[in-house]
């Protein structure tokens, strides 16, 4: 089929470039394809929802897909985006290395790839922009919260990890650093990190890991869970074991259920992330890219510590 309809577009600046030929399902600025890490976790759903709302405000269509933590699925979604001719692709890379070939295919097709929350580090890939949390700083804050929660007594602390995600590795690195600084020159009231268990970043896996952790470490005084779902799973395990008042929990994320648990005193504190800002800023980066403007290529949003006092003032919890 030949290109039959020739259209001279937007003769003057500011004219609507929506093409001739009745493209009613094509938005003025094209489509953005977003492949989320997993839409089962509210965190990524918030990114998706805010990204969609902001993009539609700027005249884009958005297609949201769920990689379900599987890089194979995510790569397929990238290929599908390329086949359907999107203007830009946004990813929460499921595997920061294995996503490389798919990103390279997008690079070859001339479609810009943006990452949010998690970064891609594969060799030879070009990422147009990244917006994420400063996870190391968040880990430091989590360490401070734990020090605060345990007070002068110190004690044994367990980490509920999710090593597959590099963001979580950075959080635990920051946490360990803060605890290490605290322990330096201290003989009494030290905080001992006794184990890292795999909590999967999920409520059920976190629950099972914590239930085992209680058996293995009866003197536990604190738990650092790398996100809210696993923190809430740990809380359930502690309640069942009748140890909830002896073990303080520090979570991460500040999603709604986590904030409610902080208000109710079930979690001591969270370094909170801003997935809503991530979604919005990612779209602004895409707009800047397409408008040819300069923008910050890697933008890390610092976390803030959220305690019970903050929750009591939080209008979003009413």
């Amino acid at each position: 089929m030949a290109a039959t309809v020739l259209a001279a577009l937007g003769a003057c600046g500011g004219a609507d470039p929506g093409a001739g030929g009745g493209g009613e399902d094509i938005a003025a600025r094209g489509t953005i394809g977003f492949s989320a890490m997993t839409l089962k976790n509210p965190f990524f759903k918030i990114i998706a929802d805010n990204l969609t709302a902001e993009a539609e405000r700027h005249g884009f269509d958005v297609v949201v897909t769920d990689a379900e933590r599987d890089v194979n699925r995510q790569s397929q979604q990238v290929d599908n985006f390329l086949a359907s001719g999107v203007a830009a692709i946004v990813l929460n890379p499921v595997d920061r290395i294995a996503i490389g070939p798919a990103v390279r295919r997008a690079n070859e097709a001339g479609v810009p790839v943006f990452t949010s929350d998690l970064q891609a580090v594969a060799e030879g890939v070009e990422i147009a922009g990244h917006v994420g949390t400063d996870n190391y700083q968040g880990g430091l804050l989590a360490g401070e919260a734990m020090i605060e929660a345990l007070g002068e007594a110190g004690g044994e602390v367990l980490v509920l990890h999710f090593k597959q995600a590099n963001s979580c590795v950075l959080r635990v690195d920051g946490f360990r650093h803060a605890i290490g600084e605290y322990n330096r020159d201290r003989t009494e009231g030290r905080i001992e990190i006794v184990a890292e268990l795999e909590g999967g970043g999920l409520r059920d896996e976190g629950y099972r890991a914590m239930a085992d952790g209680i058996q293995a470490y009866p003197d536990l005084a604190g738990v650092f869970a790398i996100n809210d779902p696993s923190a809430l799973g740990a809380r359930t395990a502690l309640e069942q074991a009748g140890r909830a008042d002896q073990v303080r929990i520090v979570g991460f994320d500040g999603e709604l259920a986590g904030k409610q648990a902080i208000r109710d005193g079930k979690i001591y504190a969270d370094p909170i992330q801003y997935p809503d800002r991530m979604g919005v800023m990612t779209v602004r980066n895409i707009v800047s890219y397409l408008d040819g403007e300069d923008f910050e290529r890697v933008h890390l949003i610092p976390t803030a510590l959220y305690r019970q006092a903050d929750a009591e003032q939080d209008p979003s919890l009413d």
């Binding site: 089929m1 030949a2 290109a3 039959t4 309809v5 020739l6 259209a7 001279a8 577009l9 937007g10 003769a11 003057c12 600046g13 500011g14 004219a15 470039p17 093409a19 001739g20 030929g21 493209g23 003025a28 600025r29 094209g30 001719g85 203007a87 001339g110 707009v287 397409l290 408008d291 040819g292 403007e293």
Partner: peptide
């Protein structure tokens, strides 16, 4: 795709792109 880029849209110059089917 190029016709949707900001600098192209705001250049104040007539833009020509192939039609679609």
């Amino acid at each position: 795709i190029g016709s949707e880029w900001g600098p192209v849209r705001t250049a104040g110059t007539p833009v020509f792109a192939p039609g679609s089917y």
